[in-house]
Design a protein around this nucleic acid. Structure first.
Lengths: 230, 230
DNA sequence: CGGAGGCGTCAAGAAGCCGATAAGGCCGCT
DNA sequence: AGCGGCCTTATCGGCTTCTTGACGCCTCCG
């Protein structure tokens, strides 16, 4: 489970050595890190440029960490992990009910913190699972919804037709060999049945090419395979 | 933040007094609780009727708690909280990376556990509930109130009919496979019973499609699954 | 010039899937 | 005990889809 690079993280803690240690460890994992010593500064940094996750200490000078959590929750649903030396149940309940996703008591191991970061980001990330929509001329292929429209009209494809088109559309412009197509759709035992491809691609072209005899998007590469032309 | 009643919770722990204490406290908060003493029993209970949250002890006779977490994650994204006497960082990292959402070391305070339950369910609930009310033509589906009206008339659905429609309506326009539907409504043990879907969707269409023979919103994708068309 | 291989087209048969219907069992309610 | 709603299970007809074989066209190459 590798760290996802590019994620912006905000660390709010008044102890310099904690800030420094977190900054070093998180940056080493490929995260982008913003450091804040006070709650006010943390809220300001988060407002200026949104962050993907916040680590907030409870004992802060000025406004308390719990207020930072409430402030962030007021406008964002980013994952928030509270770090604190306070071990009382009352503090934990208050922080979690204020909107924190997790509560870690200091001192903590860096490995545990990183694992908890992975846990909360994993759940937050699963929200919008990368759904590519391939558009080519009058064709729109929505890989997430599993729909195809040609000239603004919905096209209904059979299971095999869809899977063939899906394999091509996942790599627009790239050449896909017959063997790859047969293996992906029918399985390894059908690698030589290239006649399957001819009849099914004929049906696909009939459904979504304006002139099936002169295909513009589903292109045959003789002797090799097929390609989806944008 | 009050406890949402009706949430089904699964408790997997081999210590009888822990099971009893959790059962009493959770039921007092309005949760519905299933108790299991072994990992096998826990997985079986979850498979028979899906649960909304799982509390899993690590030290179990038979298969280990970590395997229970992996087994649940294999087919469900339900929140999972691990309870354990083990305090080592290695155990925590392993459990969290296996898919657990939180890790609580025994002994723990009931208030803290309840707060952590609220935290993970809050995030899991907020995931799809962006659209509590789905409208499609003459149909209005209120996911929060669990009510359906067709042409301004209230429609009464059976429990299974509602859950099927709910799974579809949570992702309008998106194709949901038969396997996903069967898993979500009946559990992973019923992945092959696609005849269930035919019978129940026939009843659903009879109740809320103007012309059941030509459905406009509950669409069948032959060989694949079903789709809720807006 | 002629043959071979690859490709597109068509059609027929078989297999699979869906919708409809109804009977039987389980459970809760009266 | 009786009743009714709900889920499961089985069967049947109709339709779609996949497979399979045959045929003609094209290009490439000997």
């Amino acid at each position: 489970m590798s760290a996802e690079s590019g994620l912006r993280m905000l660390v709010v803690d008044d102890e310099p050595q904690i800030r420094k240690a977190l900054g070093i460890n998180l940056r080493a994992r490929g995260y982008e890190v913003e450091l804040a010593a006070t709650g006010e500064e943390g809220l300001r940094l988060a407002a200026e440029q949104p962050v993907d996750l916040a680590l907030v200490d409870l004992g802060l000078p000025g406004i308390d960490g719990i207020e930072v959590v409430r402030g962030l929750r007021g406008w964002s649903e980013m994952p928030i992990i509270v770090l604190s030396v306070r071990e009382s149940e009352r503090d934990k309940v208050e922080a979690l009910d204020a909107g924190a996703d997790d509560y870690v008591t200091k001192p903590f191991g860096m490995g545990e913190l990183l694992a908890r970061i992975r846990a909360v980001t994993r759940r937050a990330a699963g929200r919008d699972e990368a759904l590519p929509v391939v558009m080519a001329g009058e064709l729109v292929i929505d890989l997430a919804d599993r729909t195809v429209t040609a000239a603004a009209r919905p096209v209904s494809l059979t299971p095999i037709e869809w899977r063939l088109l899906e394999v091509l559309a996942r790599h627009p412009g790239k050449l896909v060999t017959q063997r790859q197509l047969l293996q992906q759709v029918w399985g390894p035992a059908y690698e030589r049945e290239s006649n399957y491809l001819r009849v099914h691609f004929a049906n696909i072209r009939r459904k979504l090419e304006p002139v099936p005899a002169q295909p513009r998007h589903v292109i045959t590469e003789p002797g090799i395979g097929y390609r989806f032309q944008l």
